[in-house]
């Protein structure tokens, strides 16, 4: 379903550093219904990847939709995706549009 999102881009972030290094805000039942990237920390995996930018909205994490998920649940999904040893990358489906 994510592939049907207009203007969405799949970004694969290799786990190249010990942290992912993004801050997100938003989630279901807030003013920002899908998580938005508000900070990218220098030296983190996301920064090293070079394709994530502040202001982008995260639609999916490893194919799991974040629609309807509250902030903590979305944050947990991303944290788990970074922690798991099953993959040495995280796939983010992102959009520039809010």
């Amino acid at each position: 379903p994510g592939l049907l999102e207009p203007m969405s881009t799949l970004v694969r972030v290799p786990k190249s550093a010990s942290t992912l290094g993004i801050a997100i805000e938003g989630g279901a039942n807030t003013r920002q219904p899908l998580p938005r990237i508000v900070t990218i920390q220098r030296g983190g995996s996301a920064h090293n990847c070079g394709q994530l930018k502040v202001g982008q909205v995260i639609l999916e994490v490893n194919g799991i939709s974040l629609r309807g998920r509250e902030h903590r649940e979305a944050a947990c999904l991303i944290a788990e995706a970074f922690k798991t040893k099953e993959k040495d990358y995280i796939d983010f489906l992102i959009t520039e549009f809010n």
């Binding site: 993004i22 989630g27 970074f82």
Partner: peptide
């Protein structure tokens, strides 16, 4: 517009 005003702001989480 009205709906936006009534929804709370989100917390921010560093990951």
């Amino acid at each position: 517009r009205e709906k936006r005003l009534t929804l709370p702001p989100s917390e921010i989480t560093l990951l």
